[in-house]
Design a protein around this nucleic acid. Structure first.
Lengths: 143, 143
DNA sequence: GTAGCTGCAAATTCTTTGCAGTTGT
DNA sequence: ACAACTGCAAAGAATTTGCAGCTAC
């Protein structure tokens, strides 16, 4: 039987309150504000269990560590190369099935858009950058 | 000045002859047939240098190790969940730019199709599976 | 009370780096 | 000749696991 421990609750609530998918490091740092002494191994273990329960979903990104999000209807993602934050895109190209070659069985598809989010693309974004708290806890950028 | 060593030539020719993107492990095992004693560190280093020269390209996949391919015009990929091989898809949805939300600056996009390739989707594919040499050297499957 | 959970530290896995010897130009 | 390169082994980085003590039910 799965238990609702302080740690697991803190991790889940962190995701509930985020509004966007978070990395393990982001979750760890935010949830540690709610449960002091929280260990990173507990975060990894809890995320896996919450996923098995269907309460959260893993988002794999090319060349980066996974992010985690609340389950919802089919969607894709936009990754900002400036602040490294990931956003949900609730739209999907209609003609995606036409892309699979003859004889191939298409079962799923991932689409990841890259660029700059509205905050980072805005004029004077640099001035606002350091006052955006999410940037400070964002996962490590790729080289 | 960059040199054309036996090792680097073997690695490049392995990719030239593959017809599809290969993982580091696939390249290592295939190139070792051409240069005995080849070390895995040399493969990592050579791939990076070949990429800097623009002779090959890194393909990042969600939740998997990178694959490597020859550069070509814009394309996407199809990943077979049975044999774990990656294939190029030379098509692209026309309406992709419409997916970015207002204020977001779209710079690039990745599309990854998942399913079964023509060999694995074919009737009796299981019987043919073990006679497909590419399957035997394919990178590790995800859990 | 006890099975499930936690934090810590050690183990894994993948990739990178230091080093001393080798090789391409 | 000598800087670039190689194999090996050790170091890093991200994630997982073993274990002894803790806690939700």
């Amino acid at each position: 039987m799965v238990r609702n421990t302080q740690q697991r609750t803190a991790i889940y609530q962190t995701l509930m309150g985020s509004g966007r998918p978070l990395s393990v490091t982001e979750i760890f740092e935010l949830a540690r504000n709610r449960v002091k002494g929280l260990g990173i191994a507990t975060v990894y273990r809890s995320l896996k269990i919450l996923e098995q329960e269907g309460r959260i979903r893993q988002v794999d990104l090319p060349g980066q560590s996974s992010r985690w999000e609340l389950p919802g209807r089919h969607h894709h993602h936009f990754l900002c190369r400036i602040c490294d934050k990931l956003f949900e895109i609730h739209a999907c190209p209609v003609d995606i099935r036409k892309l699979a070659p003859k004889g191939y069985r298409l079962e799923e598809h991932d689409i990841l858009l890259h660029g700059q989010c509205d905050v980072c693309a805005a004029p004077n974004a640099g001035l606002r950058q350091e006052s955006n708290p999410a940037v400070l806890i964002a996962g490590k950028r790729r080289g």
